[in-house]
Design a protein around this nucleic acid. Structure first.
Lengths: 111, 111
DNA sequence: TGTTAGTGTGAGTATATAATCACATTACAA
DNA sequence: TTGTAATGTGATTATATACTCACACTAACA
C-alpha cells in the first residue's frame, strides 16, 4: 500500500467507474460497431441528449472515448478495444458468480 | 435497448462499481494470494476496520467475494479469478489510453 | 456467567454522482 | 447577418455512496 499502488488503484477505479453505469455501458455497446454522434446515440439508447452528452464527456475525460468533429456533429469512438475486453470480463465474472451460487445451493458451501 | 439489455447493463454496472473504489481494489489485490480476515485486511491496507467491513460486505453482496467463518474471524476470498482478469483489463485499458495520448500529442490527432 | 476479540451495523454527516431544465456555444447555410 | 441544428454546460434538485462513531452481535475461553 505505497504511493504507487494508491495511484494505480485510483486510476483503475476511475476507469471502472467510467464504465459502471447502465447508460454508459449502452453507449460503449453502441460504439462497438464504430463511431457515432451524440444525437444518434441518444436516440438509439432512448435517453436525454444532454444527459448522454454528460456521460460521453465523462468517458472522454477518463480517456475511454475519443472524439472527432464533422460540421455540426461530434462523433465519439472507443479509443481502445481493451474496453470491450473489460466488459467481457465483467460478464464472465457475473456468470462465474452465478455458477458459484448454484454450486453453493446444491452442495451447501459457504457464500 | 430492450429489457434484457437493460438488465445486463445493470448487472455489469453493479460489478464494475463493486470494484471501482481504491480501497476495494486494494482488498482484491490482497486477496490475490488467498483468503484473509477483516482485521488482517484492514491493517495491511491501512483503513478503518468498520470501513473495510462495509466494503467487504458490498463486494460480497454483489457476488465478487465469498466468506468463511473460523472462530471469531471471518475470512474473505475471491469467488472467481475472473475478477483479477477484469482488473488486468482495466490496467491494459489505461495503458492503451496513455499510449493514445502520446500518439495524439506527437501526431496531432484528435482526442 | 462474565470477559474479551473479531466482526457487523444503525445513525449521522459529508461528499459524489445523476438527471433535468434552460441557456450558451459552435458551425453551417440562406 | 440572421436563423437553425447539434452539442456542451451552469444551476438545481434528487439520490447514492463513503466515512466515522458508537454500539450490538457472535464465538471463544477463563
Amino acid at each position: 500500500m505505497n504511493a504507487a499502488c494508491h495511484e494505480r488503484y485510483d486510476l483503475q477505479a476511475r476507469v471502472l467507474n467510467a464504465l459502471g453505469h447502465p447508460i454508459r455501458l449502452a453507449i460503449v455497446e453502441q460504439l462497438r460497431g464504430g463511431e457515432r454522434c451524440v444525437c444518434d446515440l441518444a436516440e438509439r439508447i432512448g435517453a436525454e441528449r444532454s444527459n448522454v452528452s454528460r456521460h460521453l464527456a465523462l468517458m472522454r475525460r477518463v480517456g475511454v472515448l475519443g472524439t472527432r468533429r464533422e460540421g455540426l456533429q461530434v462523433f465519439y469512438r472507443l479509443r481502445t478495444p481493451c474496453v470491450l475486453g473489460l466488459l467481457d470480463c465483467a460478464t464472465e465474472a457475473i456468470r462465474s458468480a452465478i455458477d458459484a451460487d448454484s454450486r453453493a445451493l446444491a452442495g451447501g458451501e459457504a457464500g
